[in-house]
Amino acid sequence: MGKRLLMGLMLLAGAVQADERCAVDDRGREVCLPAPAERIAALSPGATELVYAAGAGARVVAVVEYSDYPPEARDVASVGSHTRLDLERLLALAPDLVIGWVTGNPAEQLETLEALGLPVFYIEPRSFEGVATTIERLAHLAGSEAAGEAEAARFRDGMAELAERYAEAAPLSVFYQVWDEPLMTINDDHLIGQVLSLCGGVNVFGGLERLVPRLDEEAVLAADPEAILAGGMGEENRAWLTHWEQYPALTAVARDNLFFVPPSLIQRPTPRLLEGSRLFCEKLEVARDRREASP
């Protein structure tokens, strides 16, 4: 009887260990779960998209404001904003895995969650490969490897196809506006800067030190980009581009190269970045055609 009990306990221990899930997050910490996550809290809109992309959307029990994609994420309980969490409501939802954003969530609140014993997995993809590996790691933690690996492969293949297609594209000077007041852009190290380079664009402020530099209008006028790309306050708000039309001598204005790109397609490091990158590349091709047609 004692032998049987011992063997049973050993088999049970082996089964538990076999179900353990470990992954290294973007802070270099190994996070281990005794079993695949069943109740996931995603604490930024980007994290929410990535968990769904990993095939684990049905396990998401908590999100934050502006987690609007995919559409079903809008029906998940919100626990505040990415900058200020409602910890009481979050804890009441009993997550067994919390997905935090390295630079976006309040550190002291996430430290509180860890002190209470909740596993926190930090993410913040800063490259195309980073997007793919984040999907794979989240899928591993949730036990949805097949779906996550398929989505990561689709994203990798799509970005590689774009890189090949535009490898010989003629360089084109570009200003990307990420905000209006204060006026802000991105440098070459930023993920959006990497998209510009992929499409053959030359970021006129790419060499600046800060990832998201602040500018004044005079700097943009002096740089005189051939194209201006911008998002806006919402998915269909072109007001930021309209602002530049008061400078008809600006090359981008003279050639009608003021291009709107829905911000959610380019400003979140998720698989939709592939769609945003295709749009970027198409806009720059239009600008190249207009360059050849200009006197």
Rank of each mutant, 00 (worst) to 15 (best):
I186C: 05
I135R: 07
G130N: 09
E275P: 06
T134I: 15
M159C: 15
P119L: 07
P34H: 08
P34D: 15
L5G: 01
A62H: 13
Q194D: 07
F260A: 03
Y66T: 08
I135A: 07
C22I: 08
E292H: 02
G158C: 12
A115D: 11
A160V: 13
P71Y: 06
F260M: 03
L215T: 07
I186P: 00
A239I: 03
V63A: 09
C199K: 15
G8L: 15
A73N: 15
L5D: 08
G28C: 07
W101Y: 13
C22S: 14
G207P: 07
Y122K: 07
T251C: 00
E282V: 10
A153P: 01
T133W: 04
R156M: 10
V24L: 09
D26A: 09
E209L: 14
E151P: 01
L5C: 02
G80Q: 08
S197W: 07
Q177K: 02
V98L: 10
G2N: 10
S264W: 07
G232H: 14
P248R: 02
N187Q: 03
E124D: 10
Q194T: 04
G8T: 12
P171H: 13
L279G: 08
L172D: 12
Y166R: 13
W179V: 01
G200I: 06
L229D: 04
A37C: 06
R290P: 03
W240N: 00
T48R: 10
L43Y: 04
L43N: 12
E72V: 11
A18W: 13
G117D: 08
P45C: 08
L241Q: 10
T251F: 03
V102G: 04
E129G: 11
P95Y: 14
L221V: 04
R278C: 09
L284E: 02
V286I: 12
L9H: 09
Q267E: 14
A42N: 05
C281N: 14
G14N: 06
A147E: 12
E292R: 07
A230D: 01
A35N: 01
L97A: 09
A147V: 05
I186F: 03
F259P: 00
L12G: 14
P45F: 11
V202Q: 12
L172S: 10
V16G: 02
N237L: 11
R156W: 02
C22W: 02
R126Y: 00
H140K: 05
L279R: 15
R278I: 15
V286F: 03
L50A: 12
R27A: 09
L196G: 03
V220L: 04
D289N: 03
L229W: 05
M10F: 11
L221P: 02
K283I: 02
S44R: 05
F260T: 06
R29D: 13
E168M: 06
D75M: 14
S78V: 11
L90S: 07
C199N: 11
G80P: 05
L141N: 05
Y176K: 01
R291N: 02
L284C: 04
